[in-house]
Design a protein around this nucleic acid. Sequence first.
DNA 1: CCTACCGATCGGTAGG
DNA 2: CCTACCGATCGGTAGG
Lengths: 213, 213
Amino acid sequence: MSLPPQPGPTSTRDRLRHAAAELFAARGYVGASMSDIAKRVGVRKPSLYNYYPSKEELFMDLLKSSIDDWLAVSQPPLEAEGSCCERLQGHLHKTMEFTQECPHAVVICRMAVNQLAGDLGERVHALLAGHREEYRRRLGTFFAAAVTAGEVSPAPPEILVLSWLTFLDGVLFHQLFAIGKRGADYRDHLDELWQLFWRGIASRPEMEDRSFA
Amino acid sequence: MSLPPQPGPTSTRDRLRHAAAELFAARGYVGASMSDIAKRVGVRKPSLYNYYPSKEELFMDLLKSSIDDWLAVSQPPLEAEGSCCERLQGHLHKTMEFTQECPHAVVICRMAVNQLAGDLGERVHALLAGHREEYRRRLGTFFAAAVTAGEVSPAPPEILVLSWLTFLDGVLFHQLFAIGKRGADYRDHLDELWQLFWRGIASRPEMEDRSFA
DNA sequence: CCTACCGATCGGTAGG
DNA sequence: CCTACCGATCGGTAGG
């Protein structure tokens, strides 16, 4: 029954990060105790402090990794070759793949925007606000180019950005929370939702545009 | 310094409910302690148990009230006279007014969909799932009628429902969380976002519809 | 990586 | 509505 001396298929540190992400996502920051996490790792609570100096630092590390992983997966399609429609759809698909593979990461990012008070709350808010601003800046450039290319209705880029963020956040919310066991349902309809979204912002050379002329 | 014997402009029970809603919304269920709530009410912790037998019951009562108030405000426009476009937009506006006036109520509904484990989690999930199913049923009827009336693209009603829920949840997310101090910004652009959303699902008698023919 | 332990705080009760 | 108090658990430390 005794395992070989090497840490096994994954290091304790990796198992700690995975267990903590799961529990933070499932119960929130306060609801996931260090004892719970230790139990899931298969170790006693004080041992966790060999890897992270505090619960706050553990959470911050997971949050940073979550954001970085998310960006690494989802951003390339936005900068790729192709029409703006294809690029944005690629960005959406990569985001949804990431959400499916690492739901904990996305839930941690979403719950971090509220529910955290005091010092930790401020650190988290600053981190998220920075990334969000950077993301919005990139999207602004993207949509300005899409308007110039005639692919998208000539609305102000910031409105198109808000429209996209609204759509994406709505999709993420449903993917993660609202459906529960029926998540597959929603994913099956993603392309139809995408079509309706794009239909709303696409340019219409063949008719007068009453909204944004 | 001593107040008159009547409970004041609002009863202790009302102040308790208000304080609890604020704290639950700000810090989550676990993060808002009964001591915190009591402090905000201006009373000692054990006194709270004269009004509610437990923290769980207090939360459940707030959650139920939040849902009921939300529905009471937002549903009438859906059933009113007028075009489907006007009715849905009225429903959106009433929802946003409610969100602005009672942000705690909306945050409590949103946080309740996750972050709650055990017995309470199941009770909350059952309550929310019931209301959500009822809401989707009503929306299904609404969109089926909108398609029949020729106001909306002839897509399957359930897709139109999902599209609306995605839009609404995205809007609520931004209104509540993503912007923080800049909530006013977002509200100023709500009508433009609505236009882009409706543009996506509206029927187009003047052209061939490539998406849903 | 462990046992043993810290002060603080949790939800809740007894009793008035 | 209060004081006094309960067992349980919190994040974290000492020391090995």
